[in-house]
Design a binder for these strands. Structure first.
Lengths: 365, 365
DNA sequence: CTGAAAGCGCTAACAC
DNA sequence: GTGTTAGCGCTTTCAG
């Protein structure tokens, strides 16, 4: 029951604890091969494993990376958590996972707790506009990597951001619908109170503008702000939006861009509740390309995020100051999203057809 | 940058470190209110936070619970991880998450690592038939809670299991199809090399037997064993199974029970590839009731696991030996699954109709 | 090349 | 009620 300590190993191998320590830390040049071999054998025989707490207490360092996501219950975050863990293992780290539910207070609490646990690098999937509530920790040496939230002007110096260009994402989604001939488009999202969400919306608006359309003429969903800001509810948001947009007096949209795939899937479900057919009566574009997007009926057209690559980058940044590499601080890595066209989008129904229109191939500012 | 220590707090508050320690550990009866208040204020003023590593090194205890799932990329495990985290927070713990990919070696490695990290309780979602590879850790005091894997005869004494009755689950799924009039049923799964999967299959078989059907007469999918045993591939398994079952010479089933919802969804996708309609040409029952089951088109009939309740029970067991409560060891908590009927199941197509048959309302042994 | 010794920050006896 | 003290297991100078 009593665990093996470095002292016991030292005694059994007839060396001093410090030599064993040197062995453990790869300083092989400080001992003759014979000693090394003796230590190796003893460790194996006793089944010795170093005590993390003691090591951490002594060095202040850990091989653990913190990950804070809104909720792993959401398949997108689940997939990201998985990719991040794979990337972490590849560099010899483990991952401590927390669900913030997008509540600033919980987020702050978890960052603190991770910090107390000796975690030096945290990947934060928060998208809250401000990082003020974490500034003091960052000052104390916390390496913060924000995911899916481009760097903001007031962010602390050393914060690194990994995200896709959400503006481009919103743009290509809307533009795809416009190219198919849609002219009445809606953007469906719960709250827009996050940096990435706002970006997607801006891209949506620019695409409309580029096609000479005015976002104010578009059918809008008024219930947007009533909805709780949590990913568990994302599907529900979509479903309610569908009900609301297609049962009022106003003319409903023929094409819809949803803030993410879960919302898009909920929206499709809502359309079905009303007897409408996705990809025929209404076109729907999602965002993220979760596994289920391709499985759905109809398979969902969506904007893909290169998750595995993003996870690898995030880990590299999170451990960067361990490897002595200071890195230029304040970087914001912006990857390109990719439109994946599937069957949930098609030209609008005949009565809504408009003469083909050449959309200028501009990018959003 | 230098963090505040208990010594500094003691000095500033003009008490001894041990008094501060007593305060931190809730032993308020050992100091006069005035002292207590002084300590309280000093801690707040200095922003002191106890160092976890030091505390752990001293006490050997942690407030961290380990969770090992096959893959959080799978929505079912994502949802469970989320529920478990909620339950852990409720008792003041945090969760360290690992993805085993159902590889025994990785599982063993992670359990070791968690143990090294001072984690005393681990919730293991493994379903590997044997726990031998962990026996020594358990002997050393590791509190192991297996989830979705009923206790097996050779398990170490103190292991507690939380799971649904998978045999009943498989039974009600198959029985539902039989009651609808189906007589050609298939069971679709990747590998069956896990306790819970085998249980579901046994339930499926008993339901057939209870209805006077022979499982050997049923259309079977031969590719079963070729498929990698990982949840990422679950949907793919389903899709391939559909292609295989419905394009061979043998007469295909009219009703299918899938090992889980992801596989069921993949199966539905495969049917669609072949131009078949789920809930009309073929009935499909899933397992788990992930969020997407209800969102799908058609909404999926499935067997629900009471996740939140299971998570709470798992946490209670994982921390049980902390609270001094030894608990009776070797327990196996078996909850009842619940059949959720939706639109993916219906009576078989006319040409496959059989005269109504009264199914005896027996339970599987 | 190897060993002795001094803590990292905290807790828990045991004195006072 | 409060303070003194001795480590928890490890790393890391600094001597030999």
């Amino acid at each position: 029951m009593g665990r093996v300590t470095i002292q016991q190993v030292a005694r059994e191998a007839e060396v001093s604890p410090s030599t064993v320590s040197n062995y453990l830390n790869g300083r092989m040049d400080r001992m003759v091969p014979a000693t090394r071999e003796r230590i190796e054998k003893t460790i194996a025989r006793l089944g010795y494993r170093p005590n993390r707490a003691a090591r951490q207490l002594r060095t202040g360092r850990t091989k653990t990376i913190g990950l804070i996501v809104p909720s792993v219950g959401n398949p997108f975050w689940g997939a990201f958590a998985h990719e991040l863990e794979v990337a972490a293992v590849a560099v010899g780290c483990s991952v401590l996972l927390c669900n913030s539910e997008r509540v600033a207070e919980r987020e702050r609490e978890y960052v603190q707790e991770l910090w107390d646990n000796g975690v030096r690098g945290i990947v934060l999937c928060s998208s809250l506009p401000s990082l003020d509530h974490l500034a003091d920790l960052v000052e104390q040496g916390l390496q913060l990597v924000t995911f899916d939230r481009p760097a903001q002007p007031n962010d602390p110096e050393s914060v690194v951001s990994i995200s896709i260009n959400n503006v481009v994402g919103g743009y290509v989604a809307a533009n795809h619908l416009i190219e198919l001939g849609h002219r009445r488009l809606s953007f469906v999202a719960g709250s827009l109170a996050s940096v990435n969400r706002a970006g997607r919306y801006r891209g949506f608006v620019s695409a409309l503008e580029a096609a000479g359309l005015d976002v104010n003429d578009m059918p809008a969903w008024s219930g947007r702000e009533d909805v709780p800001f949590g990913d568990v509810f994302a599907a529900d948001v979509g479903r309610r939006a569908a009900h609301s947009l297609f049962s009022g007096d106003a003319e409903p949209p023929t094409g819809v861009v949803a803030i993410n795939d879960m919302t898009a899937l909920g929206f499709c479900r809502g359309l079905r509740d009303l007897g409408l057919t996705v990809g025929k009566d209404v076109s729907v574009v999602g965002f993220d390309d979760i596994v289920l997007a391709d499985l759905y009926d109809p398979p969902l057209t969506t904007v893909r995020q290169p998750l595995a690559r993003m996870a690898k980058l995030a880990i590299a940044e999170a451990v960067s100051h361990d490897s002595g590499d200071p890195g230029e601080p304040g970087r914001s890595v912006l990857l390109q999203p990719q439109l994946i066209v599937r069957a949930s989008t098609a030209p609008p129904p005949a009565r809504d057809q408009v003469p083909a229109l050449t959309v200028p191939a501009v990018n959003p500012k």
